[in-house]
Design a protein around this nucleic acid. Structure first.
Length: 609
DNA sequence: GTAGGGTTAG
């Protein structure tokens, strides 16, 4: 600690007695009077010393034994002050204490507490600079930094800090590994995760540490490698409900509902009783595979355990499960019966109404949540706008748009921006849709897709094509959705060659494989234009032969152009897919009739040919 | 300083 001036020591001791009173008072007693008590302590310490620095100090003395021990106690108090600042996320107060620490050369003993303070307050760059400049060897501080980066959604920074830490000669321990695995999961860095997994195994850290094993399972699950995740889980020396939940959540997230539910059963078979977290993932699995009955069973289990009383996450998962299974009345009932509702519960229901075309219900729910004193979020707005678009309720949509603007929500939210543009576009207020797009500080391909789609929907194909050009001039590459719109636009305008040019450019220029919808659009246009041979060629090339609509498009063309041979051929393919399809049979019958063919070939004889 | 969970646009 070195030699400290006696006057300063005396001041420190004076502070110490006072600070201790505050620092050791139970938090509950502090909250009312000192909402910002850490700041108060910080500024008090600083001002006391500022006053003291004005005093002229003439003599310097070595510290006596008792003074030294009291000094140590003071450092402890400073650290306590920093801890209070950390807990209350009082960055301003913490900075003042930091200033004081620097001014008095007390950094070394306080370094760890300072780093933690900056991590907790989200000032991660400052924390990292402190660690680097002072070449900290504290593995716990480095781990705290890595955790901080991960929690704030900066997985890459977490990985970088992990490298920096090792560069400083600090070896990671179990806690660091657990933390960095989480970072790998968030950025899907499976290769890095695998390296860490190997190191953990080499160091024998898996034995007796369920948390680190769970973190490995979760890492693979979040990276989408469920086979590996399940394999690791099966080989772990010990596992618990959290390990299983990580795996089930992974399967549910990937839309592998069956697998998720079979793991859910395997877990129960091991004698582990599911908890709220497991139920959330199991419900998500049910929603993804339309398993309403299984979902209902889980719902009953949840009710038996009384878990819905105080768990909004679980309630949302339940509402969403019923919604995804199309059981909107049940979803609504779950929401209505909750002891308390939050905005996410409501948003899940509104999203379901909007997606399933129950737009009036979506709008009335939007009103109801506000009547309950809740405030819509970007997610709520996005779904509500979708319903406004479907109802062509431009006035209502505009009101919501203004509210979004008022709250400044459009600046960094692509999804919400797209929803606003799409609402105006669907309502036919295309100039407004375009203005919104132009005024946004960033533009993305889905916003353009919404605008272009609007032009197509309102029979303004020329303008759609113009937008398509403009978008690419701005350096934005079209995607699958954009091409659907553009091909449709060309189709409506009867621009056969343009349409085929765009269709061909998908693969060769943009690396996008045309899907069945694009191909159907092209086949339909070729067919209507009388290019039956090109339509057939495309149908054969694209191996979409199991899509009835494609054959229907081809048959319609044959009907129009009285091409009985190809028509019969298409009909055979079509009935092989669905022998009961009345539309196809009628079309074929009409074709025969129109061409004066007396003997209508029935389905059975067709399939036999 | 350490492990698992919710709603959105095109």
């Amino acid at each position: 600690m070195g030699v400290i001036r006696e006057r300063q020591i005396r001041a420190i001791l004076y502070c110490l007695d006072n600070c201790n009173i505050i620092a050791h008072t139970p938090r509950s007693a502090l909250t009312d009077r000192f909402t910002s008590h850490s700041l108060w302590i910080g500024s008090w310490v600083v001002s006391s010393f500022a006053a003291n620095d004005l005093c002229e100090v003439t003599d310097e003395q070595s510290l006596s034994r008792s003074t030294e021990s009291r000094f140590t106690a003071f450092i402890t108090t400073l650290i306590s002050t920093l801890k209070i600042c950390s807990k209350t996320k009082d960055l301003q107060g913490g900075r003042k204490v930091h200033e004081y620490i620097l001014k008095n050369g007390l950094l070394v003993p306080c370094l760890d507490a300072l780093v933690i303070l900056y991590v907790k307050c989200g000032a991660l760059a400052t924390a990292r600079d402190l660690l680097c400049v002072h070449k900290s060897k504290s593995v716990s501080c480095w781990t705290a930094l890595i955790t901080g980066y991960t929690q704030h959604g900066h997985g890459r920074e977490a990985l970088y800090s992990f490298e920096l830490m090792q560069h400083e000669g600090v070896s990671p321990d179990s806690l660091t590994f657990t933390s960095i695995l989480k970072a790998c999961g968030t950025v899907k860095a499976e290769v890095k995760g695998k390296q860490i997994h190997d190191k953990i195994v080499q160091q024998g850290l898996l034995d007796g540490d369920v948390k680190i094993g769970t973190a490995i399972v979760d890492m693979y699950a979040k990276c989408g490698n469920l086979i590996k995740a399940q394999h690791v889980l099966e080989e772990l020396p010990s596992r618990n409900i959290v390990t299983w939940s990580a795996l089930i959540a992974g399967y549910a997230e990937q839309g592998q509902g069956e697998k998720a539910l079979s793991c859910f059963e395997m877990m129960k078979h091991e004698g582990i009783v599911p908890n709220a977290v497991t139920f959330v993932s199991a419900l998500k699995a049910c929603g993804s595979i339309n398993a309403a009955e299984k979902g209902k069973q889980i719902h009953d289990e949840i009710t038996r355990q009384g878990l819905l009383r105080n768990n909004h996450v679980l309630a949302t998962a339940l509402i969403d499960m019923y919604a995804k299974c199309g059981a909107l009345k049940r979803a609504k009932r779950v929401l209505d019966e909750l002891p308390s509702r939050n905005v996410i519960n409501w948003s899940a229901l509104i999203a379901a109404y909007a997606q399933q075309g129950q737009d009036e219900q979506a709008l009335s729910s939007f009103e109801r949540l506000q009547d309950e004193g809740l405030s819509p979020t970007s997610v709520t707005f996005a779904s509500t706008l979708k319903s406004c678009g479907s109802l062509k309720a431009a006035e209502k949509g505009e009101k919501i748009h203004y509210e979004i603007e008022r709250r400044g929500l459009l600046h960094n939210d692509h999804i919400l921006g797209t929803a606003v543009i799409d609402m105006y576009a669907k309502c036919g207020v295309l100039s407004k849709a375009w203005t919104v797009l132009e005024e946004l500080p960033y533009q993305c391909v889905s916003m353009w897709a919404a605008l272009i789609g609007g032009f197509v929907q309102h029979d303004k194909g020329e303008q759609a094509l113009h937008c398509f050009k403009l978008m690419q001039q701005k350096g934005i590459s079209p995607n699958v959705a954009t091409f659907s719109c553009i091909l449709n636009a060309c189709s409506h305008l009867g621009l056969v060659e343009d349409c085929f040019r765009h269709y061909s450019s998908m693969r060769c220029k943009h690396g996008i494989d045309p899907d069945f919808e694009h191909t159907t659009c092209m086949v339909d246009l070729f067919g209507r234009a009388g290019h039956i041979d090109r339509a057939v060629k495309l149908t054969m090339e694209m191996s979409f032969s199991d899509y009835p609509i494609l054959w229907y498009a081809l048959m319609s063309a044959c009907h129009k152009w009285s091409n009985m041979n190809i028509g019969r051929w298409a009909f055979r393919h079509s009935v092989q897919l669905d022998a009961q399809d009345a539309g196809v049979c009628n079309l074929m019958a009409n074709m025969y009739k129109a061409n004066g063919v007396e003997s209508y070939v029935d389905i059975d004889s067709c399939t036999d040919q």
